[in-house]
Write a protein that binds this DNA or RNA. Sequence first.
DNA 1: CGGATCGTTGAGTTGTATCAAGACGGGTGG
DNA 2: CCACCCGTCTTGATACAACTCAACGATCCG
Lengths: 245, 245
Amino acid sequence: MMAQSPNGLMIRKLDSIFPLSDEEEQALARLPMQIAAYKADQDIVRIGDRPSQSCLLLEGFTCVYKITAEGKRQIVAFHVPGDIPDLQSLHLKVMDNSLATVSPCTLGFIPHEALYDLCNRYPRITAALWRETLVDASIFREWMTGIGRREAYNRTAHLLCEMRVRLNMVGLVEDGTFDLPITQTELADAIGASTVHVNRVLQELRADGLIRSRGTQVSILDWKGLKEAGDFDPLYLHLRQEGNA
Amino acid sequence: MMAQSPNGLMIRKLDSIFPLSDEEEQALARLPMQIAAYKADQDIVRIGDRPSQSCLLLEGFTCVYKITAEGKRQIVAFHVPGDIPDLQSLHLKVMDNSLATVSPCTLGFIPHEALYDLCNRYPRITAALWRETLVDASIFREWMTGIGRREAYNRTAHLLCEMRVRLNMVGLVEDGTFDLPITQTELADAIGASTVHVNRVLQELRADGLIRSRGTQVSILDWKGLKEAGDFDPLYLHLRQEGNA
DNA sequence: CGGATCGTTGAGTTGTATCAAGACGGGTGG
DNA sequence: CCACCCGTCTTGATACAACTCAACGATCCG
């Protein structure tokens, strides 16, 4: 099931969307990939760059962010292992955002040429990768409606729900507990609030008995309650089977 | 230049990304398309639907929206003629948002099967369509950073800049003037603000000499000033050549 | 010439930002 | 192994952007 090569994570994920043939799996496994380790808080690609490769996140968390003219940062996406954070650069030559590590990370870089080849040979893999980028877009829409129309308390609950589901998909949740190596400042930049306010919101969530946190470990104490607080419906994640308990 | 068939709009747009061969253009022109007229404020597809076709917007404006549990609406995208508002449904079976007309519209519906066929035959068309969805995603990211990190005044200016550039791409701007058949309530739902506040922001923009509006006609009086106010950099639209004056 | 939709205004309220300072905690070097 | 330090978390006080409510004016249209 879980392939042993680094590409295994990607194969497993794409396969979970629509089952791939052996031949397709082997083609994926043969993709050239250059492994690299990153420390936390390092840019991987920057706005304006013209990357010639995309990366597969193997370990750790990354984020996509933009900086406004006033110097404020908005994090528009988080990535968990198995994600391909800058797959978009395959068809959008110039990066319109920056990509950075949030925690120490292991990344696998795949040349665009290899991906073009793969797509030309296997239309179903094209479809699977295309679909990946469409799910990313769906998450953007959901975050946008949260930032635009939900209050900080609900947005925070929503994000925690999403992280739980996404991490669960790659086996990184145990008993509703998972590692979330994200500072409150980063959380604030993601939900479009100030650090101070996020701090208070988290206290509220704890006081309401929805979550508990110890260091970077987050435990969801009341999944139903948290989903309700976050107005969370996993439809937008387009899972093949609902990956929640 | 401008093809005479309804598909001409799409051909012209895709061609402007990377030039298509005659054969590819003809394949696009042969796409079966069912034309339909819609009144303003009508749903085209709803969240939860499983459409078997995608539509090409020929005339008018559409928007994508979501409703929160509290009944608040967030518009996450506007579309102008030439756009394919629900292209995503080609690979995401269930709609995670609703699509509606904003003004009276003419739409051309294309069966998914025809698009699959086309993509299987012409990898470059696949790439062009994929790219379209990636640009949509890029616009989501930009809107999100606006809603999260810019004030309503700046967001409004930003949206006007974007509409100007996008409408200009399809020849719907003359002398910095264009038709924007969007109510202030819709504008508010798009930038994540209240109607009242949008009204006041628009007055400010007028008072600052940046725009003028008469009915649904918007004139940009100070393009440089508006871009500055909106912190607008068209990079995220991924135009092949900057389509601004 | 109603009637409905959309735009405009004023007044009061609130979510959230900002500023400032202190507490905690984990790593590093002496 | 302690002392220090830096990043992160926490708290309080104040300020403001934006929301809500409510009403009125302007248009358009049948």
